[in-house]
């Protein structure tokens, strides 16, 4: 269906990756009509009700998929959903703990001109010291991106095995090149 809205242009930051990311996992059955409790890992819960369905495997060659419909929010941050073709709680219980995946390329496109990146796009990037705007010495790799309430942080492992947190801001991470697979950082003086 065309709702008349133009899709935002995909930028270099949204180049096809072929990766799948986990968006939700089952947390049990609810009621007697086949509703499922779902723990959703996405900021936008509507992602699990993607029109093309969600995959059952992280392997990009495995095309098994299911179609979920969001019903309403449940306690503890969970959501109640229904799965197409499933009408009994026994069927949900038989699934056990199942994870649902979505293609990285199905995520909404990031805005151009805004320094915004998906967490999982930053993971695995090589880390270089900033040398007056150019790439300096390679020091390690980004293990993950975390946020404990005090801003986004890159969790970096140095080549000698030491791990540390680095503030993710324009002043401390001047260059982020997702396509090129690297970031440059400026280490702050410690007081």
């Amino acid at each position: 269906m065309n709702d008349g809205q133009e899709k935002p242009a995909a930028s270099d930051k949204d180049a096809p990756t072929g990766k799948r990311i986990v968006v939700a996992e089952t947390a049990g059955a609810h009621g007697v009509r086949g509703a499922m409790k779902l723990r959703i890992f996405a900021e936008d819960p509507a992602l699990v009700a993607h029109k093309d369905g969600v995959f059952l495997s992280e392997d990009p060659t495995d095309m098994r998929r299911v179609f979920l419909t969001l019903k309403n929010a449940h306690k503890d941050g969970m959501w109640l959903v229904s799965m197409q073709g499933v009408t009994s709680p026994e069927a949900i219980k038989a699934m056990g703990r199942t994870r649902f995946y979505l293609d990285r390329d199905s995520l909404p496109a990031l805005q151009d001109g805004v320094d915004e990146f998906y967490y999982h796009d930053l993971e695995g990037l090589r880390v270089f010291m900033d040398d007056n705007g150019a790439k300096g010495e390679e020091i390690g790799q980004v293990l993950s991106v975390r946020n404990y309430g005090g801003g986004d942080l890159l969790y970096i492992r140095r080549r000698n095995g030491e791990e540390f947190y680095h503030v993710f801001s324009a002043a401390t991470v001047p260059v982020v090149d997702v396509k090129g697979g690297f970031v440059t950082i400026i280490e702050l003086e410690i007081l």
Partner: peptide
């Protein structure tokens, strides 16, 4: 608890 950042975005 690290969790999963499915569509979490980091902003500079």
């Amino acid at each position: 608890y690290y969790g999963h950042g499915a569509d979490k975005k980091a902003k500079k």
